[in-house]
Simulated scan of single mutants.
Amino acid sequence: MRFLLFTLFCLLAGTAHAAPAKAYMSIIIDDLGQSSERDSRTLALPGPVTMAIMPDTPHATDFARQAHKAGRTVILHMPMDPATGPYAWHPGLPIEELARRLDAALLKVPFAAGINNHMGSRMTAQRDAMAWLMGNLQGRELFFVDSRTSAATVAAAEAQAIGLAHVSRDVFLDDVRTTEAIAGQLRQGIELARKQGSVVLIGHPYPQTLEVLEREMPGLKRQGIELIELRQMIAERSNQAMSAHGRNGRYSNR
């Protein structure tokens, strides 16, 4: 009897610490709009990959329309300091200028359902600007993705503070631009999805990244990973911070 009770206890304890029953993954590809060849190859990836398009690129508007027509989620990949260019946000710019640049960038990327930051390690640490941005996006009914290019970011915390639909990036795929390293980052993403129930990956249209995704994405389902569209991920996470980004669902930089 004692043995049976001990066995039952072990089984129950194992169940309590088991990985989530479902593991969800969303993939965002940044820096699109620069190359028609890479844009088309990204668009052909199997599954609901989100297309993050830079406004100051030669194919931004045409590719946004093409991606939208293909049923993919389009987001504006908004340049932020230390990024440069006519649309980039920098600390010290007045709100009126930030608003003008955001309006202009959104005009260049039609059908954008939301935005994420391009670079932005300095800008996303500016609380007043991020608070204004989240309020503006809420008025436009757009969501926000914090690319988390810096641990000092307050962007997601400000989104959470007003209940703006948002998610934060968990894993960068291609900081090291080799197929071996990128495959390793994808495996890390799979493990994290199994551990916490979901994972948001960001990559770039590098040939190495696209090669790995073309090869590995068709087999994700066999590994218990369900690829979902970014809006579904936002609903799945319900504006909660993952454990690496905060505590008890709240962002640590609040």
Rank of each mutant, 00 (worst) to 15 (best):
A241Q: 11
I29D: 00
I182P: 02
C10N: 13
N239Y: 09
A23S: 14
D56R: 04
M25A: 00
R247I: 15
E96T: 12
G92T: 02
L5C: 14
K221A: 12
R72G: 11
P58L: 07
L4E: 13
L230K: 10
Q34A: 14
A155T: 12
L186I: 04
W89Y: 08
A235S: 15
I53R: 02
A105W: 06
P207T: 08
L213S: 04
L164Y: 07
G224A: 06
V49F: 03
I234Y: 02
H77G: 02
A235F: 14
D103T: 08
Q185C: 05
R254S: 12
L32G: 02
Q138Y: 05
Q232I: 04
F63I: 03
D30V: 06
N248F: 12
A60N: 03
P205N: 01
M134F: 12
H17V: 12
H77Y: 08
F9H: 05
D170Y: 07
E37P: 00
L137M: 14
L45K: 08
T15M: 15
T61Q: 11
G203H: 04
V109W: 00
E211L: 10
G114M: 06
A193V: 02
L220Y: 07
L227I: 01
G139C: 11
G71I: 04
G71C: 09
D30G: 06
G135A: 10
D103L: 06
A125I: 07
V145N: 00
Q160K: 06
A156D: 07
L93F: 10
